[in-house]
Amino acid sequence: MRSTLVRRSVLTASAVSLALLVTACGSDKAAKDESKDGGTSAAPSAPAADPAAKAKTAAELKGLLVTQADLAEHVVKEATATELQEATAAYTTTKTECQPLALVMAGSGPGKVAANVATKVTGKPKAPAADASAEEKLKAITDALKVTATMDALNSYEGNGAQEAFAAVKAAGTACAAGFPGAKEADTGKVTKIAPGPAVTAGDEAVSFTVERELDGDKTPTQLVVVRKDNTLAALYTISFGGNAEAAKVVVDTQVKKLG
């Protein structure tokens, strides 16, 4: 029991530090399409990126990334290159068709990424009152372990690279419905299921998936939202041991707004 709690606590910390990091109404046909491809949103013919478009630089991407000023009720901290490398290593999979999903979950993107930036967004735990009882303080600690953490990454591509990357992620969501093996499952938990998430309307095209992870027999739903705007691909991966990954909707909405 204690071992499980410790590992879950460590996993929560990993999510916050990015070692871990870190979807409608319509016709019957639309509902069937959504169940196959995830919570998808796009115009009948999604606007294409200019084939001659130049990729944004890392500095330009940073200007589009959410900041502490955008999310006062959260703690926002830019991810370091080392954290992103560790996350990518943890999520690498031998199942080739699932690698696009593994990459966006890790804060990167499939294909030839020209520039990549990411930030960690964590809900602020509620501190116990100064005169709180021992029981109330213990509850505050327990509640803190249920914090919702989101890894928000932006990737830029030359030409139509972002369109190709989005298509790869969407296809992987269908091909990998039964989950996929990870390089460090003992730390990150095993991906056991991928299903359509709540529908998302954003950018030129968007898709979301509910990603189920299992650690020590406990299953935790996490949420992945991927949005393409011109030749920029945004990926937001959320985990919450409170079982409410959708609590990060404000983070997703804020990031989408900044993309324009």
Results as ranks from 00 to 15, higher is better:
residue 219 K to L: 07
residue 208 S to M: 07
residue 149 A to K: 03
residue 169 V to D: 07
residue 221 P to Q: 12
residue 234 A to S: 15
residue 157 Y to H: 06
residue 190 K to G: 00
residue 164 E to C: 03
residue 192 T to I: 10
residue 129 A to T: 12
residue 115 A to F: 05
residue 123 G to T: 15
residue 146 K to P: 03
residue 148 T to S: 09
residue 197 G to Q: 05
residue 191 V to N: 04
residue 219 K to N: 06
residue 168 A to C: 03
residue 165 A to T: 03
residue 209 F to I: 00
residue 162 A to T: 11
residue 215 L to P: 07
residue 208 S to F: 02
residue 182 G to M: 11
residue 237 Y to F: 14
residue 210 T to E: 09
residue 154 L to R: 00
residue 168 A to D: 02
residue 116 N to Q: 14
residue 127 A to Y: 12
residue 194 I to L: 09
residue 121 V to E: 01
residue 223 Q to D: 15
residue 205 E to F: 04
residue 126 K to C: 05
residue 194 I to W: 02
residue 131 D to G: 04
residue 193 K to A: 07
residue 130 A to N: 06
residue 126 K to A: 15
residue 239 I to E: 12
residue 120 K to P: 02
residue 223 Q to Y: 12
residue 167 A to E: 10
residue 140 A to W: 05
residue 213 R to N: 08
residue 127 A to F: 15
residue 196 P to R: 01
residue 183 A to V: 02
residue 162 A to S: 04
residue 176 C to G: 05
residue 138 L to N: 12
residue 224 L to S: 11
residue 152 D to M: 04
residue 212 E to D: 15
residue 171 A to R: 08
residue 202 A to Y: 00
residue 181 P to I: 01
residue 118 A to Q: 03
residue 184 K to G: 10
residue 177 A to V: 05
residue 123 G to K: 11
residue 230 D to M: 13
residue 181 P to L: 01
residue 136 E to N: 04
residue 213 R to A: 15
residue 139 K to G: 08
residue 173 G to R: 03
residue 119 T to L: 11
residue 123 G to Q: 05
residue 147 V to L: 01
residue 115 A to N: 12
residue 223 Q to S: 13
residue 166 F to G: 03
residue 165 A to H: 06
residue 139 K to I: 13
residue 217 G to N: 11
residue 173 G to Y: 00
residue 141 I to W: 13
residue 237 Y to R: 08
residue 211 V to A: 02
residue 192 T to L: 01
residue 122 T to Y: 02
residue 149 A to R: 03
residue 125 P to K: 11
residue 216 D to H: 13
residue 207 V to I: 02
residue 199 A to Y: 13
residue 166 F to W: 10
residue 223 Q to P: 02
residue 142 T to I: 15
residue 187 D to K: 08
residue 134 A to H: 01
residue 132 A to L: 11
residue 203 G to A: 10
residue 178 A to D: 10
residue 122 T to K: 05
residue 174 T to Y: 12
residue 230 D to F: 09
residue 180 F to K: 05
